[in-house]
Structure formats: structure tokens, C-alpha cells
Computed example of a mutant assay.
Amino acid sequence: MSTSGRSALRELVEDFLFREAALLDEWRLDEWVDLFTDDARYVVPSTDLPEGDPARDLVFIDDDIVRLRARVARLNSRHSHRESPRSRTRRFVSNVRVEGTGDGELRVAANVLVYRFRSGEGAPYVGAVEYILRRNGGDLRIAYRRAVLDLEDLAWHGAVSIIF
């Protein structure tokens, strides 16, 4: 791929990641979940085992699209006590790396910093997100999303009720 082709691809991916971050920060979760493919998987390993595999290890989140849609519905409902009132968040996405897989998918990695504000307190969530993205016409969709927190524990953060 030419340099201009790689630049255009990186720009497409970065715009997609920035749009995803904005949807999450604006609590537009229904639109966010629509970014996923029907066979998508979303994983957040525990802080004590960041390389954890949901097939054999305990993880914070291991959602297929059905569970992810249910999570979004709960977070949008009045039954989400952890997020009532909702947290305010601001996401920063950086160090985006894009690699083609040869089968039309893209492997993407990025560093993420999420500031969460709730009940008069603020807490940073620092980590990395790995994606497998698929082209869908002129746009991209998330087939796999793995968010790895760099935190040693969630003691002063409370929980991962926000979508990291």
C-alpha cells in the first residue's frame, strides 16, 4: 500500500475511533452499540490478569452482541443504579496503530485515557484498546473490542460501569 493509501486508511480508522469516543462521552449508547457487527465480541480482562482469556480466566466483561445490547439497555434504564445519575466522561484516544490482516479486516490498537466524573469525584481510567474492524460499505464496524486497563485495581474507581 502506498504512503498516501496508508495515511488515508489511518485517517479513516482514527475518525472512526474518535466518533466512537464521542458517542460514549455523549452517552449515545444505542448508536455506539450499532457500531458492532452481529458476531461481535467485547472483552475487558481483570486488572490482575490483563492478558486473561475469557475461555479460561475470570474477566470483567465478555459480551457477545446480545449481552452488549442488554448492557446498553440496562445502562440507559432507570435500573442502572451505578450510573444514576450518569457519570460524565471525557475520552482521549492516541497512538493509533493500524495493520491489515489480509482478509479484509483491520487490526487496530490505540491508547485510551478516560476521565470519569461522578458524585463530586474524578478518576482516570488508563489503558489500551485492541480492535478487529471490518469494512461495511464505506464505513467500519467493530468485530472485536478488547479494553485492557493499566490500573492495578479498581479500589478507588469503584467499578467499570462506564464503557471503557
Score class of each variant (00 low, 15 high):
M1I: 00
M1G: 09
S2P: 03
S4A: 02
S4E: 08
S7R: 10
S7D: 04
L9G: 03
L12K: 12
V13H: 00
D15C: 05
D15H: 13
D15M: 07
D15T: 09
F16E: 04
L17Q: 07
L17V: 03
F18V: 02
R19I: 00
R19L: 04
A21E: 06
A21V: 02
A22L: 12
A22S: 15
A22H: 11
L24H: 11
E31V: 01
V33F: 03
L35I: 06
L35W: 02
D39F: 05
D39E: 13
D39T: 10
D39W: 07
Y42L: 06
V43D: 06
P45S: 08
S46W: 13
S46L: 11
D48K: 15
L49W: 13
A55K: 10
A55S: 12
R56H: 11
D57R: 10
L58W: 13
F60C: 11
D62G: 07
D64I: 02
D64L: 08
V66R: 12
R67I: 02
A70Y: 08
V72G: 08
R74V: 08
L75Y: 14
S77H: 08
S77F: 06
S80W: 12
R82P: 15
R82G: 15
E83S: 14
R86T: 11
S87Y: 10
R88Y: 11
T89G: 08
V93C: 09
R97D: 11
R97M: 02
E105W: 06
A110N: 07
L113M: 03
Y115D: 05
R118C: 13
R118G: 11
S119M: 12
G120P: 13
A123E: 13
Y125E: 07
G127F: 05
Y131F: 12
I132W: 01
R134L: 07
R134W: 01
R134Y: 01
G138P: 09
D139K: 13
L140K: 04
I142N: 03
A143G: 03
A143E: 11
A143C: 02
R146M: 00
A155L: 15
V160G: 15
I163G: 06
